[in-house]
Amino acid sequence: MTPPLEYYLLFAAALFAIGVAGVLLRRNVIIVFMSIELMLNAVNVTFIAFSRQMNNIDGQIFVFFVMTLAAAEVAVGLAIIVAMFRNKESINIEDMNLLKW
């Protein structure tokens, strides 16, 4: 027997909340980045769950594109982190505060 949609949604919400907490709590940019991946995956779960619910493939195609995007984002994001590390010798997110007054 398949679990109902609500379970999946709750699971995804929990995953998403963990991801948010990670972004907000951690100071290590790489871990912040991983938390963002967590959030993306939580969203993917909801997409696929709804796709199953509606028996419609479009949701899964969307997840496919999210993954593509995630790959691109990770490539660019990690490149930024490397460049930043070269300049500041730090990957602490609190050192990246140039955008202030």
């Binding site: 398949t2 109902p4 949609l5 609500e6 696929i48 796709s51 199953r52 619910q53 509606m54 028996n55 493939i57 899964q60």
Partner: peptide, 12 residues
């Protein structure tokens, strides 16, 4: 949400 659609088993 509504009722789940019946599965064909080869969705994805």
């Amino acid at each position: 949400i509504g009722e789940a659609a019946s599965s064909t088993g080869d969705l994805g």
